[in-house]
Design a protein around this nucleic acid. Structure first.
Lengths: 325, 325
DNA sequence: TCGAGTTAGTAAAACGTTACACTGGTGGCG
DNA sequence: CGCCACCAGTGTAACGTTTTACTAACTCGA
């Protein structure tokens, strides 16, 4: 690989001058400037990131810390983040914490060691891992409000409301809630939006919390099966939970949507592939990811991002999993 | 962050000695050795990767280049790769080429600039991107035999055969093939395994190639719908295709498995979540990923890996999408 | 006792970059 | 003319490591 020294030798100037040209610094004549630029292109010069990192402390790489790639919500996010980051010349370093706080800590430590310039993070839990305390780099949260960092996510409250109003319109009155983890604001807001939409008309008959990974606890299965006649609709915390619930119901002879309606949240690709197709709320994943990277980029270029929410609006996607009563 | 200099100062030795201890070099007394080690631990020392990279040319980071995170096969792979890599102290840098060769080239360029030590790669096509030619670092292929690199994947041929034999056992005689891309060996082998298993008993009535991303072409939809009475089973190139096919069939009033049986390949998580649950062939994803990382690690530590296949055996997962005739 | 060999440790250079302090040369202005 | 300001460009230190070449002290055998 060609170095700055090679260019200097080729043009016949000092390395300092080459560096100045390459970084757009003033105090270099236009004739030398063009010569250097041409030589650089001709030699296929690309700055050695390690050396740059050492001198400047910046690596032009960012971390992306996710709880679980197995939940299809995250690959969609990761794909969009990677692509917009790459278009800005940023490398994305991936950490999948597998839902464990220790994994998250490990991951942060590794990222710090490599000197990433910042991290885009979707926390597993509501608590800050110790490793992050020492990180003096920008952090942008995605999809998980609640910590003292800038966060970009969609309007969960509105999404929950949309779902409740839709359920009502379709004639449902008694519902069961398969909410996400109670300690996650992103789950709580969806739930609150739903519950508070029209409290007098829509009755919450039962509620159980499960993980966003869609693994149904025995309490959840019990609720699903035993109370099957007490509710006509189940509102799940996300699509994964909804689809798992549908699976569980059909296994127990409950037909969806004939015997029971189900709604999701996220509009992952599978919502449209599954039978019955899932009625859910769509988040603009690409926009969310792009915004997160944009905030990161701003942050890296010196702007301070206020620790405030960037909200994206959601839309109801009506498909086949809810029956009109 | 603590540096080697800090440790040296704390213990009262030279930085060279500290470095020697940390790298397990001889010629340092045991008392000094333990002192240094203790100080390092106490200060929470982690070597600065950028500086290390500059001196040694190794970054202890690897690239992971995937065609499409949206296909659930790849997140499972990515998760396993990341986790085993991290347990070895390797950072994973992600590139999602979105199925484009240009994206792949861009990605490789970015990875090279950052000096990754090697790349684990699942190519989109059968051709080598130009950017890779210049990469003098180890490459391990995953799931895509056909290029002149070491590759780890599962026994597609056997998988196809398993499926064909199973179809036969279940009484099917006339089948349609929804194969993956014809230029991908990984698709061709699955197909060949199926077709050649018992050519005299199992008749391939039609075959159309589609992408592994499960997007059905109009030719595919035509075949599915128009020939619905000519075959009793459809063998898809992967689970994504199979599930899309099921969706398409049910939309056209063809019930699975009552009117038509369908098989997949990969055993992605969704195969078990979808209705009807998909009969398919399972690849040991975790093992494949771990093996790829292991080969990479070996490669990094100087061993030369022969450009040969590492095969993993597959197993038939019998579920509900195939009817006994 | 002397020299060779071994052991324990050090000083300094090097990796590729950037940034700071510097040097000549030129032009303007009083 | 004398002084200052400015321009174009250079030399070199520094970032945190690893590595090479070196030294001082000690041991051992003849």
């Amino acid at each position: 690989m060609a170095t700055v020294k090679d260019i200097a030798a080729a043009v016949g100037v000092s390395v300092a001058t080459v560096s100045n040209v390459l970084n757009g610094k003033p105090n270099v004549g236009s004739v030398v400037r063009t010569k250097v630029l041409r030589a650089a292109k001709q030699l296929g010069y690309r700055p050695n990131r390690a050396a740059q990192a050492m001198r400047t402390g910046r690596t032009r790489a960012i971390g992306l810390v996710l709880p679980d790639l197995t939940n299809p919500f995250f690959p969609e996010l990761a794909q969009a983040v990677e692509n917009t980051a790459r278009s800005l010349g940023l490398l994305v370093c991936l950490i999948d914490s597998q839902g464990s706080a220790d994994g998250e800590s490990d991951g942060f430590a590794l990222l710090m060691q490599h000197g990433v310039d910042g991290v885009i993070w979707c926390p597993v839990g509501a608590r800050l891992p110790a490793a992050l305390r020492k990180l003096d780099r920008p952090v942008i949260l995605v999809d998980r409000p609640g910590l003292r960092y800038p966060v970009v996510h969609s309007n969960y409250l509105a999404g929950g409301k949309l779902l409740a109003q839709y359920a009502l319109r379709m004639g449902h009155r008694r519902v069961g809630l398969l909410s996400g983890p109670a300690d996650l604001q992103s789950a709580r807001l969806r739930r609150d939006g739903f519950v508070n939409a029209c409290p007098d008309k829509l009755q919450i008959v039962w509620e159980v919390n499960v993980g966003f990974d869609g693994l149904l606890t025995s309490a959840a299965i019990d609720a699903l099966v035993k109370h099957r006649n007490k509710v006509s609709l189940i509102a799940a915390g996300n699509d994964l939970i909804a689809i798992s619930a549908i699976r569980c119901l059909t296994e127990h002879g409950v037909k969806v949507p004939e015997d029971m309606s189900v709604t999701g949240f996220d509009n992952i690709r599978w919502a449209d592939l599954v039978t019955p197709r899932l009625t859910t709320v769509a988040q603009p994943m690409g926009a969310i990811a792009a915004k997160a990277v944009e905030l990161m980029q701003k942050s890296l270029s010196g702007q301070t991002i206020p620790a405030r929410h960037t909200l994206f609006e959601v839309t109801l996607i009506e498909r086949d999993s809810v029956k009109r009563l």
